[in-house]
Computed example of a mutant assay.
Amino acid sequence: MFDIIEDDLSGEDTRQLLALHLAGMHADSPPGSVFALDLSGLQVPEVTVWTARRNGRVASVGALKMLQNGGAEVKSMRTHPDFLRQGAAACLLDVIIAEAKRRDVKRLSLETGSGPAFEPALALYRRHGFRNGPPFASYDQTAFNQFLHLAII
């Protein structure tokens, strides 16, 4: 259905989807509440980025960031508007979870916002077993953000 590839972020289509992601995060979040990584933040050794593609077109992007404590974080999940609700993000999240298991991660976490714009992503994460929990890494709890965790066995 989708081809999942590790992405080096050099392609214009991936960069455009990441720019759309950042713009969406800023549009749907209060000032100071966006923790999405920009391109330079995704190009560090502890982050691996994948894209889901169909017929050569980028459908979705997502990343795995390794944390200092042996945990990991899901970052930069975004689906292109042309591919919404076609399973691209679910395929990509399956790959991210599998890679976390391969790397012996015990807990996979993510930080996201609240409100209608975030509900489809929250539903996806919950279908994959993520549950709400406490802040992690250097995040602070606010009235807007929430934290989800998946125990990996």
Rank of each mutant, 00 (worst) to 15 (best):
E111F: 12
K75R: 15
A89V: 06
H80Y: 03
S114E: 08
I5F: 03
Q141F: 07
G11I: 01
S76C: 06
G133F: 10
P31Y: 08
I97A: 00
G24T: 08
T142G: 14
N69T: 03
K106D: 06
Q16I: 01
G41D: 04
M77G: 02
H26K: 13
Q16G: 05
Q86L: 14
A72C: 04
H21S: 14
K75H: 05
A88T: 09
Q16A: 14
L37V: 00
S33D: 13
S40Y: 07
Q16K: 12
P30L: 08
G32M: 09
A89T: 11
S114A: 10
L108D: 02
Y125F: 14
L17C: 00
A63D: 01
D3N: 13
A27H: 11
Q43E: 14
E6C: 13
L17Q: 02
R126M: 08
S29T: 11
E73D: 08
L122Y: 05
H80P: 02
R54N: 00
V49E: 05
F130V: 10
R102G: 05
P135E: 08
V49C: 12
W50M: 04
I96Q: 03
L93H: 06
T142M: 14
G87E: 12
L42V: 03
K106G: 15
A63W: 00
P31I: 10
Q141K: 14
L37G: 01
A89D: 06
T51E: 03
P134F: 07
E6Q: 15
F2I: 04
L18K: 07
V74T: 11
G11L: 05
K65F: 00
L39Y: 10
D140C: 11
G41E: 06
P135K: 10
S33N: 12
F118Q: 07
V74I: 15
R131I: 09
L20H: 07
F147D: 10
A143F: 08
R107V: 15
A63I: 00
L148G: 00
F118C: 09
N132G: 12
S109F: 04
E119S: 08
P120S: 09
I97T: 05
S109R: 14
A137L: 01
A52D: 07
Q16S: 12
D82A: 15
D140V: 09
L148S: 09
D13Q: 13
E73P: 05
L108C: 02
A121C: 12
A121W: 13
T48A: 11
T48C: 07
P116I: 11
M77N: 01
A137D: 14
S109Q: 14
S114Y: 01
I152T: 06
K106Q: 15
L93S: 08
A117R: 12
L93Q: 12
L67P: 01
V47L: 00
P116T: 12
V95R: 12
V61R: 00
G70R: 08
R78D: 04
R15E: 10
L92Y: 04
M77I: 14
R107I: 15
S138P: 01
A121P: 14
I5M: 07
F136K: 01
L108Q: 02
